[in-house]
Nucleic acid binder design. Structure first.
Lengths: 152, 152
DNA sequence: AGTCCGTTGAGCATGTTGCCCAGTTTTGGG
DNA sequence: CCCAAAACTGGGCAACATGCTCAACGGACT
């Protein structure tokens, strides 16, 4: 299942470098035939190698320049319900269940600090939420990247 | 600068729903002329509305099914150096400087729990790192999304 | 030997892209 | 209120990429 061979990784790396690259361009860059690249790309696509395109849209120009992580402690029994409630908040863009003392790590974007407080209160008001801990992301010190992993 | 009008947001939403949609398809879906859509798309692109394509590549099939967040406490003076060192670890896919007691929130992927421990030790060994707190992401309870924000 | 799989080169119809232009509508400032 | 700038529209066009098919070649494995 996990089996990507060297060619697949090279293809993904080339794509990561230049997402707009045409199939023919990728083919000659990798020294492969256009047919091969097309087949492999199709296989990668259907095998689910690509995530939603939403991840590539920058929330900042939309008016949400700030990103924050909110750790949410939840009464275990009602975790599912709490998640449902949190999912209703549009500013929440992702949430992970995590190990450790914290139950939920919620990732959200907001317009400003005031906005963040509002959303935080909204989460706190949810039944089953015991405590939250909000951390404002000040800067992306290491910008999202996958190339180091692809190039190994 | 932040100014996206209704049409831009609709365009982005349509794109988020169907990333492979052709320009003509988007045009008729929005009831606009192909020329307009093409112009707006070009403007969005050059204005930096889109982030790197790497974000749309799933690390899991690459052999890294696990994701983890590591909170890193750093001696303030050497923050930059610590970030440089952490950036050398290929499994690190992102890092934010955040407010609160924690200095650095590092996001990484790994092959398994053993792998995670190894990387954690690697971070701990960096000069200037005082303490780390590792949380394994158990599941994406709310999958990454931007549509709720686009649709308002 | 025989079979399967990935690759290659070729070809072809179709659709999309990127660009041009002129005319019309909408927008915002004076 | 009017004018000018900006945005939108419809049309057209050449170049190109796509998706698909086919036959042929090599390597790996039974």
């Amino acid at each position: 299942m996990s089996g990507y061979d060297t060619v697949d990784r090279a293809l993904l790396a080339a794509l990561a470098r230049d997402p707009r690259a045409t199939v023919v361009a990728l083919a000659e860059r990798l020294g492969l035939s256009r047919n091969t690249v097309q087949a492999r790309l199709a296989r990668l696509e259907t095998s689910g190698a690509f995530l939603s395109f939403e991840r590539s849209i920058d929330p900042a120009p939309l008016g949400y320049p700030l990103e924050a992580y909110v750790s949410v402690h939840v009464r275990q029994r009602v975790l599912a319900e709490v998640v449902d409630e949190i999912a209703r908040i549009p500013e929440v863009i992702q949430a992970h269940g995590i190990t450790g003392s914290i139950d939920l790590l919620v990732r959200l974007v907001c317009r400003d600090a005031h906005d963040l407080f509002r959303i935080d209160r909204e989460i706190l008001a949810i039944d089953g939420v015991e405590r939250t801990e909000t951390s404002l992301a000040m800067g992306e010190l290491i910008p999202y990247r996958l190339l180091p992993l692809l190039e190994r």
